[in-house]
């Protein structure tokens, strides 16, 4: 049986506020938005406590609600109209291949995978820095797909475009991110 004390939004804030905030901040990259999302999540959780099955932990349940809030937020913020950006990118992408469509800028040898958690963390910080520097549309699509596990259908709805286009957007995001990592991490070593 769920007991009364558990149904306490202020207590959830004390216990899980930091974790939820971090989770949100990582995905929206704006501290004010992240704070708002935490508040909305706790309020929504308080109101829908009836639906909490008790099968998962409170933290998991709250994180699930937060995920929905983040996806909503992605949907609401209008995508920057950056078709120019995409064209720019098409240029830079094009130059990765020669006229015979073979690699011109060859993917480098990254050596082995990171040896330990410490290295992984460092690498991850480079990934996030790179994501911030991608054209906003690409970065958003990438985060929705790889961090939130959104389907391409959801991403298409968000960008109001056909599935084919979405795959291209994701392809470009991955290609640019990979290249950014290669320049800023693997070539440094």
């Amino acid at each position: 049986m769920k007991n009364k004390e558990e149904h306490d939004a202020v207590q959830w804030l004390d216990l899980y506020g930091d974790a939820l905030y971090r989770f949100a901040l990582l995905r929206v990259q704006n501290s004010f938005t992240a704070e708002d999302l935490v508040q909305e999540t706790l309020l929504a959780a308080y109101k829908s406590y009836e639906n909490f099955s008790g099968k998962s932990t409170v933290k998991t349940w709250l994180t699930g609600i937060l995920k929905h809030k983040i996806l909503d937020y992605y949907r609401k913020t209008t995508p920057e109209h950056s078709d120019e950006n995409l064209d720019d990118f098409a240029g830079s992408m094009g130059s990765m291949f020669d006229t015979r469509e073979k690699w011109k800028i060859k993917p480098g040898d990254w050596g082995g995978d990171p040896k330990n958690v410490y290295q992984e963390k460092e690498l991850l910080s480079v990934i996030f820095a790179c994501l911030k520097n991608l054209p906003p549309r690409l970065s958003l699509a990438y985060r929705m797909r790889e961090m939130e596990g959104a389907t391409t259908k959801e991403i298409c709805e968000r960008f109001q475009t056909g599935e084919n286009n979405c795959w291209v957007i994701l392809h470009r995001a991955r290609a640019l991110l990979r290249r950014c990592l290669e320049i800023n991490w693997f070539q440094e070593k």
Binding site: G17, L26, L124
Partner: peptide, 19 residues
Amino acid sequence: LKNEFFCQALPDDARKRIK
């Protein structure tokens, strides 16, 4: 790993406001 990596805590003023 992501959560651990970003070790920022919810800022105090925000915490108070939300509370």
